[in-house]
Amino acid sequence: MISVKNLKKSFGDNEVLKDISLEVKPQEVVVVIGPSGSGKSTFIRCLNLLESVTGGHVYVTGKDLTDKKTNINEIRKEVGMVFQHFNLFPHKTILENITLAPMNVRGIKKQEAEEKAMVLLKKVGLADKAKAYPDSLSGGQKQRVAIARALAMEPKVMLFDEPTSALDPEMVGEVLEVMKQLAKDGMTMIVVTHEMGFAREVGDRVIFMDNGYIVEENEPVELFSNPQHERTKAFLSKVL
């Protein structure tokens, strides 16, 4: 589904991603953990080219994003993204937030798009907020809408960039619950997070990143109970 080969990314002289290679299979849930500044957010943003890539290759559904001939808009239709700060469109209602891209990018008719949006809103438990504006929602509700908005494009992969980091603690659960359901439904997911509980429970694989490298990757149980590298041990001892 996603294949990353020797990915490198620099901001000026600062090399943030040094040599990242990773394969993600369909329906797999990969959780990326690591300290701040380890490059995990930059890494996930390279997977839909929100960050330009300095070196290496990123293949999504078989197409090379680093190839100039690839139409990135076509790829992005298949790759949903959820941001730390939600990034809902404040001038649109919740329903319009969800239908905007399907109608304008996929060319779906308004009525059909709205019906589908309502199904998604029910799924994330916010059907009663369809006519509200984002400003009137809590953080947890906003993030659930953001997930519904990404799902409305019927993506093949979902990227989550620290989806619960900007939330009040009591709202983290409701967002993770939606994500768990999504994983259960068979969505391919890459999740950057600090929620170790989620990583352990939902992840098929956990990746520990530090200083621009993948230091260690393993099944969650193995990685958390029996980390191989000193750096991983040090990190886990602080967060667990």
């Binding site: 992005r76 239709k77 993204m81 941001f83 990034n87 905007l100 953001a146 494009m153």
Partner: peptide, 22 residues
């Protein structure tokens, strides 16, 4: 906020669409 452009682009909108709609 640049997150608005990123969100619009991540949904597959072109730069022009994102400008016009968002």
């Amino acid at each position: 906020d640049k997150g608005q452009m990123e969100a619009a682009r991540s949904l597959g909108m072109s730069h022009v669409q994102a400008m016009k709609l968002v």
